[in-house]
């Protein structure tokens, strides 16, 4: 047994990657550690949002109507639940497309893998489109990062989430272009798996944000 171990290591010294002590992939361990770290990143952002809930002296507010005493202008609760519900659904479906893309790469099914990678990226981009629409309409209605505490904490929290989605879409498009150019082999499924873990994590962060920011009044 012991001799075998030494021999195997010599074989690996000859060019292949040495096996890892846990048998787990390095990049996958790193991405899980990264996701653990991201928990604290979003926990800090979400905490700040929740701490500042209801602390702004001036509106517009997320759910409640506010009448500007200076101008008499009335702002309705600014969050658009129907639109955001649709975009939430889109992001959930992108996670489904993501797992299908991964399992297609594992099977070596290049046709499906391209379709599902493209679908995931497309759904992610659609979510970003919804977010861009939401942000611009808020600005039109008079809510910017300068307006009040709600504006600052809302835009920074959801904006950081959107930045994560954007990075994910770029990652997916990179994988897609590699798949189109030379095909992702089942050996490379781990690369898709790592991207998928990141993508699903961004999705679960949105699950939390959707409830904490949008639904709870």
């Amino acid at each position: 047994m012991a001799t075998a171990a030494i021999d195997t290591h010599d074989a690996h010294a000859g060019g292949e990657h040495p096996p890892t002590s846990t048998g787990l992939n390095n990049t996958k361990v790193a991405i899980w550690a990264f996701i653990g770290s991201e928990c604290f990143f979003f926990a800090s952002l979400i905490s700040t949002y929740l701490i500042y809930r209801g602390r702004s002296p001036v509106g517009p507010f997320p759910h409640d109507t506010w009448k500007d005493p200076a101008t008499g202008h009335v702002f309705k609760g600014i969050l658009n639940i129907p639109i955001t519900s649709v975009s939430t659904f889109v992001l959930l479906m992108s996670s489904l497309a993501m797992v299908l893309a991964h399992s297609a790469v594992v099977r070596g099914d290049r046709k499906s893998s391209k379709i599902w990678l493209a679908a995931t990226a497309f759904l992610g981009a659609t979510f970003l489109g919804f977010q861009a629409y939401e942000f611009t309409s808020f600005v039109h209605e008079g809510l910017t990062i300068h307006t009040n505490l709600f504006g600052s904490s809302f835009f920074v929290l959801t904006g950081f989430h959107g930045a994560h989605v954007t990075a994910g879409v770029i990652w997916l498009l990179t994988l897609l272009s590699i798949d189109m150019k030379r095909g992702l082999t089942p050996d490379e499924a781990i690369n898709v798996d790592v991207c998928a873990l990141y993508w699903h994590f961004v999705d679960v962060v949105w699950i939390a944000i959707f409830t904490l920011v949008y639904l709870i009044k």
């Binding site: 500042y52 602390r55 702004s56 990062i145 300068h146 009040n148 505490l149 600052s152 920074v156």
Partner: peptide
């Protein structure tokens, strides 16, 4: 990041007048 945004982009995270803590 909050402090950077406050200093460079005018957010309200640490602006006491805006109700910040």
């Amino acid at each position: 990041t909050f402090l950077m945004l406050d200093r460079f982009f005018g957010t309200n995270f640490y602006e006491i007048q805006a109700g910040a803590d």
